[in-house]
């Protein structure tokens, strides 16, 4: 082996390389997003993921090797979720004042997310295992995978659908709110969190800490609600 090949073999098997690639890809994606004024389509998750996937394909690296390094970033999702408590307490006076509309809108949005997914899937003739996998698409990955496997769905597909839903929600958020002339940041954030979980919440934090707070709340509460709701609605579907 040439020295370069030896070096590559060494680096490609260590966490350092792919951790660094993940951070650099995100840094570039975030620069591009900032350059476009955080426009809806300049989504940093999508751009950074595309960059990483290009690197993996160019070097013939598998996901397992990549994740050895990327797991350190992935792990931070836990502490980041806990950190949502800080803006929540900072904005608590806003939350308390809006508690009634918040809870009513949460229930309406949660039911809509599950019911429309099931109804459309049923109308388009999807098989039952795909249907029940689709139903919890608007909540965070661990909850969605739990619900899907509990009802005989496909957990790995649930993860795919959850991430895709988050990306769709993050991209659609500001154009949709503009179209409906909803300028209230609380309503914008809550919608993003309820319908598009963490990726929607990340988008809401790009808009403002207040929007992010309501998104984090929407995400957390919808997790509870969807876990109760999906088994019920699947039952109603009579399958």
């Amino acid at each position: 082996m040439t020295p370069v090949e030896t070096l590559w073999v060494y680096l490609a098997e260590r966490p350092l390389l792919w951790l660094t690639v993940t951070l650099v890809a995100y840094w570039i994606a975030d620069r591009i997003a900032a350059r476009f004024g955080y426009a809806p389509l300049a989504n940093p998750v999508v751009m950074a993921t595309a960059l990483v996937v290009l690197c993996l394909q160019a070097t013939g690296t598998g996901f397992a090797t990549y994740f050895e390094g990327a797991q350190f970033v992935h792990f931070l999702l836990g502490p980041a979720t806990v950190a949502l408590a800080v803006p929540f307490v900072e904005n608590f006076h806003h939350v308390r004042r809006a508690i009634v509309p918040l809870l009513v809108a949460l229930v309406a949005g949660s039911v809509t997310a599950v019911a429309t997914a099931l109804a459309l899937g049923y109308a388009l003739g999807l098989p039952r295992d795909i249907l029940v996998t689709l139903a919890p698409k608007s909540v965070t990955t661990p909850i969605a995978m739990g619900i899907a496997s509990q009802l005989g769905g496909i957990p790995s597909l649930a993860a795919v659908l959850v991430i895709s839903t988050g990306v769709v929600g993050a991209i659609v958020l500001t154009p949709l709110m503009g179209l409906m002339k909803v300028r209230d940041e609380r309503a914008q954030g809550l919608s993003a969190g309820v319908a598009a979980h963490g990726i929607g919440t990340a988008r809401a934090f790009q808009l403002s800490p207040l929007a992010g707070t309501f998104a984090g709340l929407g995400m957390g509460l919808n997790g509870f609600l969807t876990a109760l709701l999906v088994p019920l609605l699947v039952l109603l579907l009579g399958q």
Partner: peptide, 25 residues
């Protein structure tokens, strides 16, 4: 099918959440 469902369902759920919030507020 999945793409259509994800886009429609997510958009409608966001619209309903925001409109209900505004109405009740």
């Amino acid at each position: 099918s999945l793409a259509i469902i994800l886009v429609v369902s997510t958009t409608v759920a966001m619209a309903v959440t925001a409109l209900v919030f505004r109405m009740v507020a």
